[in-house]
Design a protein around this nucleic acid. Structure first.
Length: 474
DNA sequence: TTAGGGTTAG
């Protein structure tokens, strides 16, 4: 069996994951006999559903372009595209249908989303066709479009191609500047290609007038691969060139020390920051609380958490999340829940990260019923369970052999209009293979069909599906 | 959407 190695699908560049999952639960009934058009706020979920369930392109075109049926706007199109994120081919089909409509013209943000989707599918022909279309309509491509393209090429394992595209940007009507250069460095660093980024930096730092942001990006890159000494070396060079470190620079180093397990160095660095009267901020403290906690020093983490308030710096939801994660991992889920309660008393609104941390903590403690209860509570705080919430519950149920409960969560997910991703299918299909009940294979087969429908590029999962189908046929 | 903090388990 292929290992369960898929990661949650990357959200559209620059958009927070939570935007992808909001799922109002109203079902839109087709107004066949109704003379009035649907309300202007007709939900993207409804349209996404129509796109997903349409039999073919012709009927979908007719439905979408029916006069006065939908009031198309950039917002509605963008929301629909984000909803169809894990259904790339369908999303592009939707985009193309509207693109050919004479009553509606896409805006550049929708083009950027379509470019992102095509790039994620590694459908480079469509990608560049879209870019051409953008250009002919004078909507771009802009620096953001290129940032998306570069990021996708790098994550597809084509960093050299990305560099070439960057160097040819000006020929495509989008001149490079320092910001674009820094963006490329950051993309390379975030994909752990620090050497490549550093070499590029050395070649072009004069031409683009590299600044403290460029240095911070590279220092963070070295820290990401736990090479704090390389980061320090770079920062020394920065100072020699007359650039002053910023608070971001210090926070990067601090995180770097914790990441590489240099707890003592981290603490000394922090003391030094204080001694030099650096204006510490909430990020500094969140880094320390999380760093100490993950290193197992929970009481120190708590002490710093209390100290920050005395220093006049209020914790953020992220600080609470750091503490909650630490307590779940290194103390007990009960103490995490009491911090969660304290958070509420102080007027903080927990977000989906908070909930997912607690739900995971409860699952880990074997308290599946309470975990499900917590998921129910999310709506009270206006944060819908997202694909990660569902996936983690499904994973814990399946790992415990409770596949039927896992499938129950999967059904719930569908009812709430939260689209499953590759991870979801991977977890379910894999666990059904483990149980090997004949009736499971039927369900797994249906799931496999759904994966094929997704048009995924995940080879492992594809292989699983092919295997499944052949076993069911045999 | 130019840089720094908070979600897996193995």
């Amino acid at each position: 069996m292929p290992k369960n190695t898929t990661r949650p699908a990357k959200p559209p560049a620059g958009h927070h994951f939570k935007n992808l999952v909001a799922a109002p639960h109203f079902v839109y009934s087709s107004p066949q006999n109704s003379p009035t058009p649907p309300p202007p706020g007709v939900d993207a979920a409804v349209i996404a559903n129509l796109v997903l369930t349409s039999a073919n392109s012709k009927t979908l075109t007719e439905t979408l372009l029916k006069p006065r049926r939908f009031r198309w706007s950039t917002d509605l199109v963008d929301k629909t595209l984000k909803r169809l994120w894990n259904h790339g081919p369908k999303a592009l089909q939707f985009f193309k249908i509207l693109d050919h409509s004479s009553h509606y013209s896409h805006s550049s943000s929708s083009f950027d989303l379509a470019v992102d989707i095509a790039a994620r599918l590694r459908d480079y022909k469509t990608l560049w066709t879209l870019v051409d279309r953008m250009r002919s309509r004078r909507l771009g491509p802009n620096p953001k479009t290129f940032a998306i393209i570069l990021e996708r090429y790098v994550s597809a394992g084509k960093p050299d191609r990305a560099v070439k595209i960057f160097l040819s940007m000006h020929e495509q009507g989008c001149p490079q500047d320092l910001i674009c250069f820094n963006t490329l460095l950051d993309i390379l660093c975030k994909s752990k290609r620090i050497e490549k980024a550093h070499n590029l930096f050395k070649i072009f730092r004069g031409r683009f007038r590299a600044d403290v942001v460029s240095y911070n990006i590279l220092a963070n890159g070295w820290c990401l691969i736990r090479r704090t000494s390389k980061a320090l070396e770079l920062l020394k060079e920065m100072v020699e060139r007359g650039l002053s470190p910023t608070l971001t620079t210090y926070n990067i180093m601090l995180k770097g020390y914790f990441r590489s397990g240099q707890i003592r160095e981290a603490w000394e660095f922090f003391l030094e920051m204080r001694k030099r009267k650096c204006e510490l901020d909430v990020i500094t403290y969140t880094t320390i609380v999380h760093g100490f906690g993950i290193a197992g020093e929970v009481s120190r983490a708590r002490r710093v958490f209390n100290e920050m308030v005395e220093e006049g710096i209020l914790p953020s939801v992220a600080t609470y999340n750091a503490l909650i994660q630490v307590l779940c991992k290194k103390d007990s889920v009960e103490s995490a829940i009491s911090v969660f309660a304290e958070m509420g008393r102080k007027g903080y609104v927990p977000n989906s990260v908070t909930y997912n941390l607690l739900i995971r903590g409860l699952c880990h403690a074997g308290e599946m019923d309470r975990a499900m209860e917590f998921m129910g509570k999310m709506k009270e705080d206006e944060c819908e369970p997202n694909v990660q919430t569902y996936n983690l519950l499904i994973r814990y149920y399946c790992d415990a052999g409770e596949i039927d409960d896992g499938l129950g969560v999967f059904d719930k997910m569908n009812c709430e209009h939260c689209l499953p991703n590759l991870d979801t299918y991977n977890i379910l299909i894999t666990s059904m293979f483990v149980r090997k009940k004949p009736e499971d294979l039927i369900v797994a087969g249906k799931l496999a069909d759904a994966v094929v429908f997704l048009g995924t590029s995940d080879c492992n999962l594809h292989l699983t599906c092919i295997l499944l189908r052949s076993r069911i046929k045999g």
